[in-house]
């Protein structure tokens, strides 16, 4: 296999190498990609959409349709992980560990046993995670809100600087993932449940598709945000900008939710019990 693989790879590589001979030079300002379609974006985008970040303009408006499906791909991946991994038959683990929060005493409860008092002073802990790592917890608790605010900033400021729904969404999701890593998965799931991630995931994509459909209902083409001008009370160019913002928010919601969803499933192998 190794030899065959090597041969295939070498053949493939030399074929491409041969093709590279005939490429335009790297970074050549006169190469076709720089001359044919893109000048329109560069020169007209700000006039047509009022968004200085060309990537955002192209991403969310000119080729907004691609981006809708990009979000859908992420959503589909979340769905796929859920379908593939999630174990819904509730099996009671062999033993569970509980920690008494005030004292730090750990109780081990065998299968079928019950906690002496169902009070809030006990918390369940992972079977192979005994210590209570204060440093990491405090740091992440400290960072999390900043990270979330930063994520929102990235989503909202995507028009003027790099960033946008996707990046912001991932950071937002990463904040939750960090919480789940530094505390434990169960607590994170208590905060943001599986159901919430799934529904938010579809809601995010739905915001995107719904915005497009709204444009369609208003008589323009699908995703033609210019049609929203009447609703938003601005001129069509600004309406495009605002439309993009709405769409980016949808993307952000979807991506963050789905990232968390995938993480939940992947880190606990679908049991949503104990995780990384």
């Amino acid at each position: 296999m190794r030899i065959i693989g090597l041969l295939i790879v070498i053949a493939f590589g030399s074929l491409l190498r041969y093709g590279v001979f005939f490429f335009p030079e790297w970074g050549d300002p006169a190469s076709p990609p720089s001359l044919h379609v893109s000048p329109h974006y560069i020169e007209e985008a700000i006039a047509e959409t009022a968004v200085p970040n060309l990537v955002t303009a192209v991403l969310a408006d000119y080729r907004g349709y691609d981006t809708m499906f990009e979000t859908t791909v992420i959503f589909a991946a979340g769905l796929a992980c859920f379908m593939l991994l999630r174990v819904l038959q509730r099996q009671v683990p062999e033993c569970r560990l509980y920690r008494h929060i005030p004292t730090g005493i750990t109780l081990r409860i065998e299968k079928g046993g019950k906690l002496p008092t169902e009070s809030g002073s006990f918390e369940r802990i992972d079977s192979n995670w005994v210590p209570h790592d204060l440093i990491i917890k405090s740091t992440s608790r400290f960072i999390t809100p900043f990270l979330q605010i930063f994520a929102l900033y990235v989503i909202a400021h995507g028009h003027h600087s790099p960033g946008g729904g996707f990046q912001g969404g991932v950071i937002l999701g990463a904040a939750v993932i960090m919480y789940a890593i530094s505390y434990d998965l169960r607590r994170s799931i208590q905060r943001i449940g599986e159901q919430a991630t799934a529904v938010l995931g579809s809601a995010g994509v739905l915001i995107y598709a719904g915005t497009g459909a709204l444009c369609m209902v208003l008589g323009a083409a699908f995703l033609d945000y210019g049609a929203l001008a009447g609703l938003l009370g601005v001129d069509p160019v600004m309406a495009r900008s605002h439309g993009m913002l709405i769409v980016e928010i949808g993307v952000g919601i979807a991506v963050s939710a789905v990232m968390v969803w995938i993480y939940y499933n992947l880190s606990s192998a679908g049991r949503h019990d104990e995780g990384l």
């Binding site: 955002t56 991403l59 996707f166 950071i171 990463a174 993932i177 890593i181 992947l266």
Partner: peptide, 22 residues
């Protein structure tokens, strides 16, 4: 820049976490 941003969040962050989880 946007691609770099995405790669920073996805490649460096999330996908590594996914790998470790797997």
């Amino acid at each position: 820049v946007d691609v770099a941003f995405t790669e920073a969040t996805v490649g460096a962050g999330v996908s590594t976490v996914f790998f470790v989880a797997a």
